[in-house]
Amino acid sequence: MRPAISIVFFTVSSGAGLGLLVLMTLLSSLSAVHWSAQQQRMGGACAIVLVVAGLCASTLHLASPHRAWRAFIRVRTSWLSREAVLAVLVLPLAVLWTWPGLVSQSLHAALGAVLAVLALLLIYSTAMIYASLKPIRQWHTPLTPLVYLSAALASGGLLTVWLTQLEGASAQTGLVFVTLLALASTALSKLAYWMRAARMDGATIQDALGLKSAAQIKLLDAGHTHRTFLTDEFIFRIARAHVQTLTVMFWLAGLLLPAWLLVWFPQAALTAACSCLLGLFAERWLFFAQARHTVQLYHGATQV
């Protein structure tokens, strides 16, 4: 699949913002951390900016953005519609939670808990947009939402660690542990995702053409002289060297460096968060670039 930069940016940026929102509100609602008014404003603003920037980027890929308001209609069947509805629920509630004094102290804890649940559901529905697509075998697995949720909580966790240190306090052991857990979960789920993708059991060109008994089928002519919408959208080839560079970037910048910094230099949490985001950009770009759609079979691929 063609990796659209707007979508790569959207999933990583809003994922980190929502991860931050989940941990920030949960820690506060469980009374594990008491945020000062300044921290609350700063953290909430950071989360909202990351989510809004992502959402704005995502509308860039719409061919008719003036009709984006229609996306709230099909909540019953469409994950994209669910995502849109959850996004417009989460953002105003996040503003209410962030701005000190807008809601009473008792209501604030309840609001935080609701917000955390909705934010988690929002990350899940974003992932399910991709995981629900049967023609892309690599995406059609529960591992996809697992990777998205883990990556969002890992990057959001690093940002939360940074937030706790804003007023000189040292990082909370519990929070550091949760963040490390999220980093480990990202690593394991992505590893499982890649191992599953490497298995060669996708549909074949025989399945695609309904000619099951043909021993060998090859494309003679795709019927068009130049690129088409289909070749632009579904046929994307990346050099092996490119894949290696981006994979290394994901492991080093996305996971190992942040984990190492978190354990030994927790005061460098912001650097760790930025590094993690960089690695996740590489991971998300590969998520799209390495996915193979069944349309490729009609253009000469023998198996997806």
Partner: peptide, 8 residues
């Protein structure tokens, strides 16, 4: 769209 294949 019409595509052309060779089988066998």
């Amino acid at each position: 769209r019409v595509r052309h294949y060779e089988t066998g």
